[in-house]
Amino acid sequence: MGCGRRCGCWALSELELERARHQATLEENTRFQMHIKDLRDELATLHSTVGELERRYSDLSARYRTTVASLDDVNDTTERLKDHSSDLVDQNRRLRANCDKLEEEARLLREELDEARGRAEDEHRRRISSEVSLTRDLADTERKFEVKLRRAHSLHDLDKQHLKHDVDRLQHALHREKKSHQMTLRKYHRHYPFTYCLPHHVYNCHVCYPDPMLLD
C-alpha cells in the first residue's frame, strides 16, 4: 500500500494538524481574554478618575458656599457699622479690606469651581463615550471569539469524523490484507507441505506451524 489517505501516516498527520489548530485557537483565546482584562482595567481607572473629580467638585462647592456665607456676614456687619462713631472707622476699614479679600477669594473660588465643573462635565462625557466604546469593543471581541470558537469546534468535530472514517477504512483494509495473507499461507502450505524449518532443523515443522488452517 502507498502513503496518503490509505495509510495510518495520513491519519497521524491530520491529527497533528488538528492539535496545532487547537493550540492556535487556545493561544488566540488567551490573547482575547488578556485584551478583555485590559479593557476592563481601563474602564475601572476611568470610574476612579471621575469619582475623584466629583469629590473635588463637592469640596469646592462646600468651600464656595462657606465663603459666600462669610461674605454675607461681613456685608451685614459693615452695614451695621456705618451708623457707629468714628472710633469704628479703622475697624470698618479693616473689615472692608477683609471684605475685598473675601470677595477676591470668592471670585477665584467661583472661577475654580466653574473650571472644575467644566472639567467634570468633560470627563463625564469622555467617560460615557469611553464606556460606550469599551462596551462595544468588548461585545465585538466576545462575539468574534465565540464565532471562532464555534468554528474551531465544528472543524474539530468534522476532522474527528474524517479521521474515524479513515481509521475504520484502514482497519477494514488491514483485516482484508490479513485474510489475504492467511489464504496465501494456506495455499503455500497446501502446495509445499514439506518446508525446511531452520530453527528446528526439520521439514514441515509442526512446532512453528502446527496446522495452517489454525492461522486465523
Score class of each variant (00 low, 15 high):
34 M>K: 12
104 E>L: 15
23 Q>Y: 05
188 Y>I: 04
109 L>V: 05
202 V>A: 11
3 C>Y: 14
134 L>C: 05
152 A>T: 03
87 D>W: 07
11 A>C: 12
24 A>D: 04
142 E>N: 01
98 N>K: 07
57 Y>R: 09
166 D>I: 15
41 D>W: 03
151 R>G: 06
204 N>D: 14
120 A>Y: 10
160 K>P: 01
62 A>P: 01
4 G>S: 03
96 R>H: 13
109 L>A: 03
18 E>N: 02
122 D>R: 04
177 E>I: 03
152 A>Y: 01
193 P>S: 00
169 R>M: 12
137 D>C: 06
148 K>Y: 03
160 K>W: 08
176 R>S: 13
185 L>K: 04
110 R>E: 10
42 E>V: 01
207 V>S: 13
213 M>V: 11
75 N>I: 09
118 G>Y: 08
94 R>E: 10
129 S>C: 03
16 E>F: 14
4 G>M: 06
37 K>T: 12
126 R>I: 02
4 G>Q: 02
160 K>H: 02
155 L>W: 00
10 W>E: 08
146 E>H: 09
192 Y>C: 10
76 D>H: 07
30 T>M: 08
193 P>Y: 01
19 R>W: 09
9 C>T: 04
65 R>L: 13
32 F>Y: 13
47 H>G: 07
106 A>M: 13
211 D>V: 11
128 I>L: 14
57 Y>I: 06
19 R>E: 11
130 S>C: 05
33 Q>C: 00
177 E>P: 00
29 N>Y: 02
169 R>P: 04
92 N>D: 03
121 E>D: 08
191 H>R: 15
148 K>S: 06
97 A>W: 10
90 D>S: 08
34 M>F: 05
61 S>D: 09
64 Y>P: 03
40 R>E: 15
192 Y>S: 12
153 H>Y: 12
78 T>V: 13
14 E>L: 13
210 P>C: 04
8 G>K: 07
66 T>Q: 08
98 N>D: 14
195 T>R: 15
201 H>V: 00
94 R>L: 06
185 L>G: 01
154 S>W: 04
30 T>W: 13
11 A>E: 10
211 D>L: 03
191 H>I: 06
142 E>P: 02
152 A>Q: 08
